[in-house]
């Protein structure tokens, strides 16, 4: 018999980034070993009331062929059947989707952890109450400035006051509330102030990292992308704030950019799927490849396709080209079936 504690390795398995220690831990257990994904990122709809300059999805209008309520609920059933433990719903603005609460109730009814990513503008006291009743893993609100002027300059048509009010309603009702901040030339100087504001509101955590050069952000890259010096100062501020709020509020930042992420994913794809509003399933946000369609394939089949797709020479070659020439990231939303 051998049940010494050392043999029951309780080791971190994935997935914060390309570090050697992590790769060593991962040896022998990679995404291909999993019978189903561990995480589903689901862009529920494409409609959005804002026109953010840095939107990865180029959201705005609804797609003509988005999944219906019945199709969405069938997908939820498959997620539960495959024992997928965790899902995140985003958009567009997901609270504009008429069946969002049906979908959330289905997911939570199967005890799957659920995060909702929103701009917060449709969360009044009543909606906050409905979200609280779902006992979500978290609601993540986008707040791109510590002041209305900065936030609204980047998030065209946005209302900082509404986003802040949403955070306050959610916190008051005990919802685990997070803020996501995307640094650009417009707002990077307010990161520290924003983190202080988050703390004062009782936020659980602030998430940030380098802006991804995909979607609308790719088109606006020259006016958005902070300089190296600005990023350096930004990460110093994050380090200061991480230390200042240690044990009280989580300040999480992903230090790698999208190209470093792709280099890592080429070797170690994650055990996750990205579902877009019309039911197509992408390999990963920054690449254009689609490995399945929920209207035609079962989720189980799509997972098998996903595993194969990462070993497909076309995917490998294109990913290497993107790594060499990041301008190709602008192709990320021109979907290609693989």
């Amino acid at each position: 018999m051998d049940i010494v504690a050392e043999d029951k390795t309780l080791s971190r398995l994935t997935n914060p980034g390309p570090d050697d220690e992590l790769k060593a831990i991962l040896k022998g257990t990679n995404f291909e070993d999993y019978e189903s994904p561990l995480f589903i990122a689901w862009q529920l709809n494409s409609a959005c009331n804002l026109g953010c300059l840095h939107c990865c999805e180029e959201a705005g209008h609804s797609m003509p062929d988005e999944m219906t309520k019945d199709e969405s609920l069938d997908f939820c059933r498959q997620v539960a059947d495959l024992k997928i433990p965790y899902a995140a719903i985003s958009g567009g603005e997901p609270l504009l989707c008429p069946h969002i609460f049906d979908v959330c109730e289905s997911i939570r009814g199967n005890n799957i952890s659920l995060k909702i990513e929103t701009n917060g503008e449709f969360i009044d006291e009543e909606t906050a109450g409905k979200l609280a009743a779902l006992k979500l893993r978290s609601v993540q609100v986008s707040l791109d400035g510590a002041t209305p002027v900065t936030h609204e300059r980047l998030r065209m048509g946005g209302d900082w006051e509404k986003a802040v009010a949403a955070c306050r309603y959610l916190v008051e009702l005990g919802v685990n509330t997070e803020i996501v901040f995307v640094p650009t030339k417009f707002n990077i100087h307010e990161a520290g102030e924003l983190i202080d504001l988050a703390y004062s509101m009782g936020i659980y955590g602030v998430y940030t990292g380098k802006t991804m050069r995909i979607g609308r952000a790719a088109r606006n890259w020259d006016i958005l992308c902070p300089s190296e010096a600005e990023y350096e100062r930004f990460f110093d501020v994050l380090d200061e704030k991480t230390a200042a709020y240690e044990g009280e509020m989580k300040v999480y930042y992903y230090p790698y950019d999208v190209i470093e992420e792709l280099k890592y994913r080429l070797e170690s794809p994650s055990a996750s799927l990205l579902v877009v509003p019309n039911g197509k399933v992408k390999l990963i946000g920054p690449l254009p490849f689609v490995c399945g369609d929920l209207r035609q394939d079962s989720l189980s089949q799509i997972w098998a396709n996903y595993k194969k797709a990462w070993r497909n020479p076309e995917v490998i070659e294109f990913t290497r080209k993107v790594i060499a020439d990041p301008k190709l990231l602008a192709e990320s939303n021109n979907w290609r079936e693989i």
Partner: peptide, 24 residues
Amino acid sequence: RKEKFGTVVFDTLTEKIFITDRIG
């Protein structure tokens, strides 16, 4: 979640994943 290679423990709040062997 049980997998062929062991049991996966997923702390979805911190988004950290751990694995254990069969006895774990």
